[in-house]
């Protein structure tokens, strides 16, 4: 039994002539918190989008518990345009829609919060349970699934209580303050019953105190739900505090990886971050 939950193999994403993610290979281990960091525009979110099926990568493979869930090689127009490396002509082509990938057990949050704004907090979480229900349209419409619906509702109430959102359950999601919206997004992701949780800049826009709380929250949640966490973050203190392993991306390329200490002392990482000043 392998303890690698998620593995990327030579993942490349090219938009037209621009290579956003270049030959990225990495591993995310069971029960660990792995971070993906890098300057703005380094291709972190693009990598997430490839994993979750929003984009079809130009080349490369994504394995989830050893099974290829996304796999592609340059085809059609991209064959000529391709500027990345490691074309494996024999690589098979596997693609899944985002909902199928979520069903397999990968949940995510978004960099620019994407809640269902006109639904209540409670409904937002309930929506995430929809795919786990055995109902069909007929049984759902005529309430023949009431037992299941009741169970799901209770599960969601429990989840909201844990996240401290219970008292807000009838509020419109769009009317919540920013910090709570982030919390709700994580709660919603948890409701999909994931094995792997992808967090895209969960601390964006938070002050140091809130960031601190979030760090504790992530660790607690991970332990409680036996999750593996893979996160993108800019707040270095958060990343350094909770991550077990860090990957650093710059201009789409992996430039370093290791434990927080190793990464902090890596010259290329320091250059990449300080080098931003030259470009600006």
């Amino acid at each position: 039994m392998t303890d690698i939950v998620l593995q990327l193999e030579n993942l490349t994403m090219q938009f037209g002539g621009v290579v956003a993610v270049d030959n990225l290979s990495l591993e995310v281990k069971q029960d660990k918190i792995t971070a993906l960091i890098g300057p703005n525009g380094a291709g972190k979110t693009t990598a997430f989008n490839c994993i979750t099926g929003v984009y079809e990568p130009t080349n490369g493979c994504v394995y989830f518990y050893g099974e290829a869930i996304v796999s592609n090689r340059p085809r059609g127009r991209m064959k000529k345009l391709y500027a990345g490396e490691n074309i494996n002509a024999n690589r098979k082509i596997v693609s899944h829609t985002p909902d199928e990938i979520t069903k397999m057990g990968i949940a995510r949050t978004f960099q620019n919060i994407r809640l269902f704004k006109s639904l209540t907090v409670f409904e937002n979480v309930l929506v995430a349970k929809h795919m786990r229900m055995k109902q069909n349209v007929f049984t759902a419409t005529f309430r023949l699934n009431y037992k299941e619906e009741k169970r799901i509702r209770q599960e969601c109430l429990d989840l909201l209580e844990e996240q401290g959102l219970l008292h807000l359950r009838n509020e419109m999601a769009g009317s919540l303050p920013y910090g709570l919206q982030r919390r709700l997004e994580i709660a919603r992701a948890l409701a999909t019953e994931p094995k792997l949780l992808l967090l895209d800049e969960p601390a964006a826009g938070m002050n140091p105190q809130e960031t601190q709380d979030l760090a504790d929250f992530i660790v607690r949640t991970k332990d409680k739900y036996n999750l593996t966490v893979f996160l993108i973050e800019h707040h270095m203190d958060l990343v350094m505090r909770i991550s077990d392993h860090i990957y650093v991306l710059d201009f789409g390329k992996l430039i370093a990886h290791g434990t927080p200490e190793e990464v902090q002392n890596n010259q290329r990482v320091i250059d990449a971050y300080l080098g931003v000043a030259e470009d600006a």
Binding site: T97, P98, D99, E100, L119, H130, M131, Q135
Partner: peptide, 24 residues
Amino acid sequence: SSYGRAFKAIRDDEIAAEAMGINL
């Protein structure tokens, strides 16, 4: 019903709905 919630989720944000496992 649960389907109605899924419809409203699609209306609000297709990409998020998909990420919640709803087959568009």
